[in-house]
């Protein structure tokens, strides 16, 4: 192989790598993902317990990072790309750490769909769906549903309904 051909191959490889990287950057927007979750573990004041919460939540499948804020009784979870939110596993982890689990607030990016007349956030990347409950935002969300826009939502996880986790929407934003 002569030198010119080697240089050409290097250019080709660089262009391909850049393309793959760009696809990667767009992946969360295209398929959605669970961004983070805030889990309240009530009564967490002792650092040994906080480290216990950190330890057990860190072992929940898909969780990549846990930070605990003792002052707010909250554990902040970050998720791997493609990981889903396993509320039962989170509950088990908090209980194992010796606490009663309070509210779980999740932030996720996904697309709006309609199922059985209800608005649903579909996080394709995580193969997970959330039934959105937000009467005051229904008109705006219905508009976004028609536009097929990707949105980032934050809301409290509630008891399951129609086989889906319900999310009481607190905040949403269109992902550009």
């Amino acid at each position: 192989m002569n030198a010119t051909k080697l240089v050409n191959h290097r250019w080709l490889a660089a262009v391909l790598a850049a393309g793959i990287a760009m696809l990667g950057i767009n992946a969360p927007r295209a398929s959605g993902q669970i961004v983070e979750a805030k889990v309240v573990a009530t009564g967490m004041a002792c650092p040994f317990c906080a480290y216990g919460v950190e330890k057990w939540l860190g072992r929940v499948h898909g969780v990549t990072d846990v930070t605990v804020d003792l002052k707010t009784d909250t554990a902040n979870l970050r998720f791997a790309k493609g990981a889903s939110l396993d509320a039962k596993a989170i509950h088990r982890a908090v209980t194992k750490a010796g606490f009663t689990m309070g509210a779980v607030t999740v932030t996720a990016v996904g697309f709006l769909t309609e199922e059985n007349g209800s608005l649903v956030l579909t996080v394709r990347g995580a193969k997970q769906k959330f039934l959105l409950t937000s009467p005051e935002n229904e008109k705006a969300l219905t508009k976004l549903l028609k536009e097929e826009a990707a949105i980032q939502v934050t809301g409290k996880v509630q008891a399951r309904q129609q086989g889906l986790a319900r999310l009481a929407l607190a905040h949403y934003a269109v992902v550009k």
Binding site: A45, C46, P47, F48, L70, K71, D73
Partner: peptide, 9 residues
């Protein structure tokens, strides 16, 4: 002492 956090450890 900071409230909400048990110290010393």
């Amino acid at each position: 002492a900071a409230s909400g956090v048990d110290s010393p450890e």
